Amino acid sequence: MKIGITEVAARAEVSEATVSRVVNRRAGVSAKTREVVERAMAELGYERTTRGRLVAVITPGLSSPFFADVAELIEAALAPHGLKGVLCPAQGGGIQEREFVTALAEHGVAAVVFLSASNTLDDADPETYDLLAARRIPFVGVNGGFEGHDMPVLSTDDQLSAELAVDHLWSLGHRRIGLASGPAGNRPADRRAEGFRAAMARRGVTDTGSLVVRQHYTIEGGQSATAELLRHDVTAVVAASDFMALGAIRAVRRAGLTVPGDVSIVGHDGSMIMEFVDPPLTTVRQPLDRLAKEVARSVVALVSNREVPKGELLFGPELVVRGSTAPPR
């Protein structure tokens, strides 16, 4: 026997209109009533249809090839399940992100994916997550979790990323290795900085204070950080993103040096376009395909009221060696 909203309404002792609002996650239902209806749905085995539903993908922007690539992969992974990804570029933790989520919640969005958005910030305002939780709208994090909410988080292993980059440069003969990292308070950047210090310490370098510079995830940020690192005589730079690595290359050249002749550069993310820069960029590639598929699997399960593993799942990155790294002079 197929369970519909009529059976759910009878079990919960509410109107079918109320059940419809809960099913479509619309406003106008008290938290207590919503809980009663959700419980009735679970007891009867009612499954929300996923066809035609919207899934919001909140991302800090699409100018970076990495975010564009992973957002496209998430959309493609959701499509076979009848879910439509809607891209919402917004500054992480800003008003625009909250307004996107609020508006979509009012229109019955099925789920929200935070793609390196406010979920990467230590001081993120929990109001957005609290709103989704109150509406029983599931959400998933990529490269960052949610304080106070036990939702699935899929992340690249940032500490392993740092180890792969340092190990590659160390094996080439570099000993003065610097890190051009993202801003403090950004969880992936903090993890990479921690991983970098640990990787250097394992190789006997414990004084890394001047070898770690925090800047924005931009070309300009990478250029500024690398210019400072060059003043400390580094022969290699690990950048926290491919865009920062492009800035690092610019800083090296403006100092009258060459890449990789004088300074080797390693990026992070693994955007395909970095194969075609000059020189082609050695980088630590995030496992975009696997991340996107796991995001889609988690979203589909949550939308269908199925249990999913909670907590953070770490994915191993891959070192891609190209022309921006070489032994030191």
Results as ranks from 00 to 15, higher is better:
216 H>S: 14
238 V>A: 10
176 R>E: 13
236 A>H: 10
191 R>Q: 15
222 G>L: 12
217 Y>E: 02
202 R>K: 14
187 R>Y: 06
276 F>Y: 15
260 P>L: 00
259 V>G: 06
215 Q>M: 09
267 G>F: 03
226 T>N: 03
234 V>T: 11
252 V>E: 07
271 S>N: 01
196 F>N: 07
182 G>P: 01
249 I>S: 06
287 P>C: 01
278 D>H: 14
200 M>V: 00
207 D>A: 13
175 R>M: 01
210 S>T: 14
182 G>I: 02
178 G>Y: 02
229 L>R: 10
233 D>W: 06
234 V>F: 04
257 L>D: 10
182 G>M: 04
224 S>R: 12
264 S>T: 01
259 V>C: 01
200 M>Q: 01
263 V>Q: 05
210 S>H: 13
262 D>S: 14
268 H>C: 01
195 G>E: 06
272 M>D: 14
266 V>W: 06
197 R>D: 14
194 E>L: 10
255 A>F: 11
197 R>K: 05
268 H>F: 13
251 A>Y: 02
270 G>M: 07
251 A>K: 05
177 I>V: 11
245 A>M: 09
270 G>Y: 14
216 H>F: 14
239 A>V: 08
233 D>F: 07
246 L>R: 03
192 R>L: 08
204 G>F: 00
285 R>P: 14
185 G>D: 11
205 V>F: 05
275 E>V: 03
251 A>F: 04
219 I>N: 05
239 A>P: 06
271 S>L: 01
249 I>C: 04
236 A>T: 08
256 G>Y: 14
238 V>E: 07
218 T>E: 13
203 R>W: 07
194 E>K: 00
175 R>F: 00
231 R>G: 13
268 H>T: 01
216 H>W: 13
193 A>W: 13
